[in-house]
């Protein structure tokens, strides 16, 4: 893989990590609020349904995971098992797409 692409992938992983840090904090704060307020599942869905700001935040969270996780997994597999090359890169890309689709589907399910 070209040096430029490797450098950009490294940058994507670091940028998504920064985004994840913010998203995880937001997620924890949301969970603490929901639990401490004793909200039922129906009450939570009542608040998330149709809430564009919530959907946008969690869709961003999913995007950060879908970028970050496959790149990290790729590094681990390259170093530990020597899995490198185009076919493996395609597999990790597929894993990222799977994470994105599954995550966005979940966000859509709660947003509806």
């Amino acid at each position: 893989m070209s040096a430029r692409r490797e450098a950009l992938l490294w940058l994507a992983q670091r940028a998504s990590a920064m985004l994840l840090a913010a998203c995880v904090l937001l997620h924890l704060a949301t969970m603490v609020y929901a639990v401490r307020s004793g909200l039922s599942a129906a009450a939570i869905l009542g608040r998330t349904g149709g809430n564009l700001a919530w959907a946008a935040a969690y869709a961003t969270f999913v995007l950060a995971v879908a970028v970050h996780a496959p790149l990290g997994l790729r590094s681990v597999c390259t170093e530990w098992f020597g899995w490198r090359g185009r076919a493996w890169d395609a597999a990790f890309l597929g894993f990222g797409l799977l994470l994105a689709l599954a995550g966005w589907r979940a966000v859509w399910g709660v947003f509806q």
């Binding site: 430029r4 450098a7 950009l8």
Partner: peptide, 14 residues
């Protein structure tokens, strides 16, 4: 070097 290569990559100079 990581910062320098990332900047160069973004500017299309890598």
């Amino acid at each position: 070097l990581k910062r320098a290569t990332a900047l160069a990559a973004m500017r299309g100079k890598l």
